[in-house]
Amino acid sequence: MTATVSTIDTQLHGQIRWDYREEKTRVYSLYELAKSKVWKTSEAPWEALVDHSLPPSRHQFEPLAGFAPFDALPSSRRIDCSWYRHGLEISDILHGEQGALLVSSQLVSCMPDIEAKLFASSQVSDEARHVEFFSRYLLEVVGDVHPPSDAVAALIKAMVNDPRWDYKFIACQILIESLALARLQDIRRATLVPVLAHAIDFISADEARHVKFGTEILRRHLASLNASELQTRSDFVVDHLLGLADAMNIYTRIANEFDWDVRALRFHLRQNRIRQPQPRHDLFRQLMLNMNSVGLLTPQTERRLSGLA
């Protein structure tokens, strides 16, 4: 049986600021924007009926289409498989959102000035809303929440347990938020579920605001580091990205569930990526843009990422 609880043990090195007379910067503007953009999950169109006799995504976005064992399934079983794939995908997004919730709550203490603490507190509220939405969506619409893949669980534990605020910040604001932005837009284009489409529009706006906050804070901090320190942090991002490769490719779990040959399915998916390279390109492009904006895209790292894309 999969464990439903994991323990964390971390030591935070934060700051308490007693001087509130600070010059207002772009970070404060982002905080003001965050306050004006609060939305409620309860106002999403939950009443819109979801027909489970139809797949959750448009057929042209189904990556399993063209794989002989999938195509050979009866129509109802193919739809079940699509919903199972969708549930795995959204479950990992949910777990990532909880990781961002935990880390952003820690960052309130770690941030160097008051306005950064204020924005970090608004991000805690945003991430809580995302966890609320995706957990309700999985339980009420999809039917179940799946455990996190090993790589997703490992990244979340590493973020939460790391005592270094900038590593937490890089993992949360650059790695997870960048991947989430790209993946959510991919799902938004494909989904046939009204409540999911509605929420993704709001969640994506929240995530974009978090990335802008991360860019503002990290650009100043990383500029103070030497080349070796910068490369270490850059490698941290890419190493975890490589670890997430299996998590982003949830199809091994699908193959095991449907008793398919894993190697044959992986070959099909590689061919599918060759035929439709845009989603993967968008994923890495978003990450590379955000890494470049804060100074983490070193020549060495750019070569590593270009090989992956």
Rank of each mutant, 00 (worst) to 15 (best):
S6I: 06
T10C: 04
Q11W: 03
I16G: 08
E23P: 04
L30A: 02
K35R: 15
S42E: 15
E43D: 15
W46Q: 10
V50F: 10
D51M: 10
L54E: 15
P55W: 01
P63L: 08
P63T: 04
P63N: 04
G66M: 04
G66D: 03
A72P: 08
A72E: 14
P74D: 11
D80R: 07
S82E: 11
W83N: 01
W83L: 01
H86G: 03
G87Y: 01
I93H: 11
G96R: 06
V103T: 15
V103N: 05
Q106R: 06
M111L: 10
D113C: 05
A116C: 02
K117S: 05
F119N: 11
V124H: 07
S125F: 07
D126K: 05
E132Y: 04
R136W: 09
L138G: 06
V142P: 02
D150C: 06
A153M: 13
D162I: 03
W165A: 15
Q173G: 00
E177W: 09
L179D: 04
L179S: 07
A199L: 02
D201W: 06
A205I: 08
A205E: 12
A205C: 06
D206F: 00
E207D: 12
R209L: 04
H210Y: 09
F213V: 07
G214A: 06
L222G: 01
L225M: 12
N226V: 10
S228V: 13
E229V: 02
T232N: 09
S234A: 15
L241I: 03
G243R: 10
D246S: 13
M248I: 10
N249Q: 11
I250E: 02
T252R: 10
N256D: 11
F258M: 14
F267N: 13
Q271A: 12
R275P: 01
R275N: 07
D282I: 00
D282G: 03
M288I: 09
L289S: 08
V294C: 10
V294S: 03
L297N: 11
R304C: 08
R304T: 07
S306D: 10
G307M: 12
L308N: 07
